[in-house]
């Protein structure tokens, strides 16, 4: 009986120690993972923004050259691409991929 109790207290003690160790481990890990993820997010957003501007410019230039004036097309396409880039960045920051579309 006393054996059983000793074992049980031993076990609960083990549980406590395990929880404590886990907590310490988590605390150690979390900041590193976050800064890494933030850098990844930053790069992702930067690529999205640049690509949006370039696609806007390219589209404007192409449509413009079909209509006779590539320069005017470029001038219209660039701000649209810029706005689209900002919109993409805003949207992907409001909805980080790691969490999926849950906050929609």
């Amino acid at each position: 009986m006393s054996d059983d109790e000793a074992q049980r207290s031993d076990l609960s003690d083990f549980g406590d120690r395990l929880a404590k160790a886990k907590g310490e481990e988590e605390a150690k890990r979390k900041p590193a993972r976050r800064s890494g993820a933030a850098a990844g997010d930053g790069l992702r957003v930067a690529i999205e923004f640049v690509v949006s501007v370039l696609v806007g410019c390219g589209l404007g230039y192409t449509i413009g050259s079909f209509l006779g004036s590539p320069v005017i097309g470029l001038l219209i396409g660039m701000p649209i691409g810029f706005a689209a880039g900002l919109r993409t960045v805003y949207r992907s920051m409001a909805r980080p991929p790691a969490e999926g579309g849950e906050n929609e």
């Binding site: 992702r44 690529i47 690509v51 949006s52 649209i80 691409g81 919109r87």
Partner: peptide
């Protein structure tokens, strides 16, 4: 609408560029 269209068209490009880069 044009902004949304450009934003949509840039999706495959950014998807491709990100992985490739």
């Amino acid at each position: 609408t044009p902004i949304e269209i450009v934003s949509f068209l840039s999706r495959p490009v950014s998807l491709a560029v990100r992985l490739f880069a």
